[in-house]
Each structure stands twice: as C-alpha cells, then as structure tokens.
Simulated assay, not measured.
Amino acid sequence: MTHLPERLLAGYRSFMASRYSAESQRYRALARDGQKPETMVVACCDSRAAPETIFDAGPGELFVVRNVANLVPPYAPDGRHHGTSAALEFAVQSLKVKSIVIMGHGRCGGIGAALNPTAEPLSPGDFIGKWMGLVAPAAAALAGNSMTAAERQTALERISVRYQVENLRSFPCVKILEDKGRLSLHGAWFDIERGELWVMDPKTGDFERPLLD
C-alpha cells in the first residue's frame, strides 16, 4: 500500500538511480556543511515555470520561494504571518545571498485573476483575489487602453516584475546591502511556450532577450 501518488514514487526511483547516484557526494556535503546558495529566486507556483529546471540548477545552487504570481509584499513588520517576507529575511540575513531574481512568466493565472477582478472567487475566503490585490493598481491602469487581452496579460506580467523589485527595496536589509553593492536585484520573465527568457534592464525596466552563444 502506497501513501504517495505512484507518479511521485516512480520519479523518486528515477532520481535515486540517476541524479542522486551521480551527485551523492554533493548531497552529502550539503547535508554536512549546510546550504550556501548565492542567488535567491522569487518565482510563481505555476508547475510549468520551475526555476531549478529553467536555470539547470543543481542541489544547493538556488534558494527558491514560490507563490502565486511571484509577488513580494511590501515590508510590513506587523506581527502577522508573512511567508515570503520570512524567506527573504532568511536568504538575505542568514544565507547572505548575493543576488535576488524576481521571475515572472507567460500565461500566469494569478495575473489573469488580477485583470479580471469581477470573476467569481474560487472560495469564500477569496485568497487569490486578496493576494493579487497587490498588483491591482497596475492592473487598473492597463484596463482602459486599446491592447488586446493577450497583450494586456503579458504587459502586466512584466510590469508586476518591476513592482516586485521595488517592493524588495522596501525591506531595510535589502536596501542597505544593495546601496553598499553587496546585493543585486534582477527581474526576468519566462515564455513557457517558446522557452524564451527575457531579462529586465535595471536602468530602463525594458525586457530583453540575452544573447546565447
């Protein structure tokens, strides 16, 4: 009798026979010495846009926090539960990462919800609706223009990345280290259909595709 879906067990067997077998020494070193990733990635929960897969990262290379639509709430030390803020604090203060990447992606369901605030909530609590209220001002600004629905979706996915980078700077520990040149902040957007990665220019906010050799 199994207590996990068979697909997960099959994947675990494959992991043990291939990746773990090839990198067992690395896993043992990580277990013994702890993790020391240099990069934190704030990404979406979407199963199609996993940072470890997109960046071909090995164990211990990335510190990843995922939430709906890759959002970073503004700094708010109010005593409430703040999962993303806690992860950010740990990455910056304890792990001392050198860079933070906000990575959005195409066809994001959370962004779609923000663009359609009149849709029926999925539950009485409307957790997604309340969470996506963080980008409501940007969504409202896009509502009255002549873009198509698809263009509006992509625009907000990218604009939101810029907003989240600014929200990072509302955390004193982030702003202080960035000003000292010890922490860099980045934005990126991944096109699921084409596998294209677009990187945000830190000065202009424009998204460009990096040149690949």
Rank of each mutant, 00 (worst) to 15 (best):
M132W: 03
P59W: 08
Q164E: 10
G79V: 08
S146N: 15
D78S: 13
E193G: 09
R182T: 05
D46G: 05
R13S: 08
A140Y: 00
A155E: 11
P124G: 11
V42T: 00
P77T: 04
T53Q: 13
D78H: 10
G125W: 13
V174R: 06
R7H: 03
G79F: 07
A150C: 00
D191F: 12
K180W: 08
T118G: 06
L134G: 10
F63D: 03
L168I: 10
D33H: 05
A138K: 10
F190G: 00
I111G: 06
D126E: 05
F90W: 09
M16Y: 15
E61N: 07
I111Y: 10
S85V: 07
G125Q: 13
M103S: 06
G109Y: 04
G79P: 02
G104N: 10
S99W: 01
L88D: 02
P74Q: 13
G34Y: 07
D126G: 01
P77C: 08
R19K: 12
D33C: 10
V64N: 02
R169D: 02
I100Q: 05
T84G: 04
A69R: 07
V161H: 00
E23R: 11
V68P: 00
G60Q: 06
Q153N: 13
P210R: 12
Q153E: 08
S21A: 15
C45G: 02
R107G: 01
G129V: 07
S160L: 03
P210V: 12
G195W: 06
L4E: 11
F190N: 04
H81I: 15
Q153C: 02
L197S: 04
A86K: 02
M16H: 10
E52S: 11
P73R: 08
P51N: 09
E208N: 08
R107T: 13
Y12C: 04
D56N: 15
E166F: 09
A76F: 09
K130C: 05
Y75K: 14
V97I: 12
R26S: 06
A76T: 12
Y12N: 14
P117G: 08
A87Y: 02
E23P: 02
V161Y: 00
A49Y: 01
A22I: 10
S94N: 15
G125S: 11
H105R: 08
R80A: 12
V165F: 03
A119I: 07
Y163C: 10
K180S: 13
A155K: 09
V42G: 03
G58Y: 06
S47D: 02
F190I: 04
D46M: 03
A50Q: 15
V65P: 00
G133L: 11
E38C: 03
V92E: 00
V72Y: 05
V65Q: 05
T2H: 14
T148A: 07
S18T: 15
L95T: 10
M147D: 11
G79M: 03
E52L: 05
L88N: 01
K36M: 07
Q153R: 09
A57L: 09
L211Y: 00
S21Y: 07
A150K: 10
R209I: 12
H105D: 04
I54K: 09
D191V: 06
A76W: 13
P210N: 11
L71T: 05
